[in-house]
């Protein structure tokens, strides 16, 4: 089933983050082979963490050609409203249907902090603009014929202050037109649980697919990196300690992810998971197998 149909069908959904690539097409093909059959769609990042890489459009189009369903992330940091619309429509020309709209980390989070930040639109505005494209018109009102077939999604961070406002912010994004919400990795299970309970109570979970992120890291180093370097992510010191001081830190890191995934899937209104794999190898199939989530295994 196509990803947009799957999201609209109400069935379980698994998405995965596609690793960053630059110019190594062979690596891109290898990663695509590794994820094919396990994820219903793969996120193509847009200059992730404010570092320049091969463009979201180029990678999404390449993955489409390899038979994967890309979710093209579009961030507001680097481009104005004309360029953002051009990217979405241009990718749609190549069959890229799913877009994930985000505000984006600031340029100061990356390796070129001298860059001019744009933020001509913000995340919720970009969602509305992408929906206008799907309805057959640019923001200016100029018609697009035929209208691109788009499934518009977004992100939300249940683990960043102000916690009690995050459900309202998710609601705003859904009102703007988001039909799936990939939730930032959250190392505070109570925050994720409170967020999902609020989203379910507000009737949001029947209007959009909520997909908490699970990060598969190799050990405590990955957790520490996220805690210190990734905006909006906090990893409790005791969680890092538990992994670091385990007899087998790699196994402990995997078990942490497995426990997080099990907890996330137990929450009301959670439709599936978004997986970010820093371990490589068979980590994704192993996690899904341990969670007893069957995926199609066709190539």
């Amino acid at each position: 089933m196509r990803f947009d149909e799957l999201v609209r069908s109400g069935g379980p959904v698994v998405t995965a983050e596609f690793p960053v690539v630059d110019t190594d097409m062979a690596a891109l093909v290898r990663h695509a082979d590794r994820l094919r059959g396990w994820a219903d769609a793969v996120n193509v990042t847009d200059n992730t963490a404010a570092h320049a890489h091969a463009s979201n459009v180029a990678v999404a189009v390449a993955l489409r050609g390899l038979g994967l369903e890309p979710i093209m992330q579009v961030a507001c940091r680097d481009k104005n409203r004309l360029a953002l619309q051009a990217d979405i429509v241009g990718a749609a020309l190549h069959g890229v249907r799913a877009v994930c709209c985000l505000t984006g980390d600031d340029v100061t989070a990356g390796d070129e902090p001298q860059a001019r930040r744009v933020f001509d639109l913000d995340g919720p505005q970009l969602i509305r603009v992408a929906c206008a494209l799907a309805e057959g018109r640019y923001l200016s009102g100029r018609a697009i014929d035929p209208a691109p077939e788009l499934l518009v999604g977004a992100v939300e961070n249940p683990g960043a202050p102000p916690y009690s406002h995050r459900v309202d912010r998710a609601a705003k994004k859904i009102r703007a037109g988001a039909r799936f919400l990939q939730l930032q990795i959250c190392y505070h299970p109570d925050r994720l649980a409170a967020f999902m309970a609020g989203a379910a109570r507000a009737g949001l979970t029947s209007r959009a697919a909520f997909l908490p992120t699970i990060c598969l890291v190799k050990g405590a180093g990955g957790l520490r990196f996220m805690n210190e370097k990734v905006p909006g992510i906090s990893v409790p010191a005791e969680t890092i300690d538990r992994v670091e001081k385990a007899a087998d830190p790699s196994r402990a890191a995997y078990e942490l992810a497995l426990a997080q995934a099990g907890h996330a899937l137990s929450l009301p209104g959670v439709r599936g998971l978004h997986l970010v794999d820093f371990r490589g190898g068979d980590a994704v199939p192993r996690l899904l197998s341990d969670l007893r989530i069957s995926r199609r295994l066709t190539a």
Partner: peptide, 21 residues
């Protein structure tokens, strides 16, 4: 807001409520 956001806080707000940027 350093990102001039009009629709609420971004996902980068720090644990202690300080600005990401």
């Amino acid at each position: 807001c350093p990102k001039t956001l009009r629709n609420g806080p971004c996902g980068g707000v720090r644990e202690d409520g300080r600005c990401e940027v």
